[in-house]
Design a protein around this nucleic acid. Sequence first.
DNA 1: ATTGATATTGATAATTATTCTCAATTAGTA
DNA 2: TACTAATTGAGAATAATTATCAATATCAAT
Lengths: 162, 162
Amino acid sequence: MTLPRQHSERHAEKLVRREKIESKNFKNIIRDMGMKVTDQRLLILEALTAGRAHVTAQEVFEVVVEKDASIGFATVYRFLRKLTESGFVNEVRMGGLAARYEMSSQVHHDHLTCTHCGKICEFENHDIEKLQESVAKQFGYQLTGHVLELYGLCRDCQKKST
Amino acid sequence: MTLPRQHSERHAEKLVRREKIESKNFKNIIRDMGMKVTDQRLLILEALTAGRAHVTAQEVFEVVVEKDASIGFATVYRFLRKLTESGFVNEVRMGGLAARYEMSSQVHHDHLTCTHCGKICEFENHDIEKLQESVAKQFGYQLTGHVLELYGLCRDCQKKST
DNA sequence: ATTGATATTGATAATTATTCTCAATTAGTA
DNA sequence: TACTAATTGAGAATAATTATCAATATCAAT
């Protein structure tokens, strides 16, 4: 299947422009962290943004090594840690499994999961967040993050189980 | 400091009685799991109940090895896993740190964990629980459970990292 | 552009927590 | 008491992550 030439050219142009913009943003992210901009770091950020969310360090490494066969996984681990510490990336850990990473979205949310069908609703509740802060303060902790997962039966599954 | 003889005798009696009762309960827990009762397993349960909550496998091992120098840490790990799978024990994991274990209590509580040293505080906040209920209701869910883990820097680690 | 101080890199060793293996021992039962 | 299957301890194996260090690349100042 071929597209009309004009269309395809415009498409290519757009891609190039977008790549430049992203690259610029990536560079700014790295500079914001007070670090030097390197090809390896740009590739890692690209992999995190382009691929699916919740990837392991190994998965990031496998994507990046395609474009730069000489990269070492220590570099990936190192940079992921820095990104996590700076808050640009979220680290999610489950059991004893490898940590998974995702670009932190600006929009914070928690999850409400149906224990029967697995449907997930995202929600955000400012009052809960404030109470969490106050609990942490009460114990002398400086809050840096939280995991709140609610489990229940969704409307559909409540009907079915009756 | 010495106590009046009578008192001290009664005290000793109580201790013995309690030990027997606990030992019986421990045996029942093990039998409920369909496993054989061994001295090692009784000692592990004793350590989990007597010591402070939220201990690592290594910490359990260190307590138990005092009473039975020949025990291997594989035995501790193995049994802790079984206890966790059977729900008699709760496993709490934070970051890449060692898992921590506690006897599952009837009293519900959430955790506030230090991301630096792994120290865990338990808390209970009725307001948060009520808000969770209302979020669930809002989405038409019938709430059955939740996980709330707060992460932060404890007072000590805040000082150290300055 | 060249240089130089310093950060970064890749390879590999080290570490940490946990699990696996297996021969010897032990608990529960017949 | 003897048998059978579960359990044990020691140490090897694994898996994820971090530390080490000499070689290289970045960036700021010239």
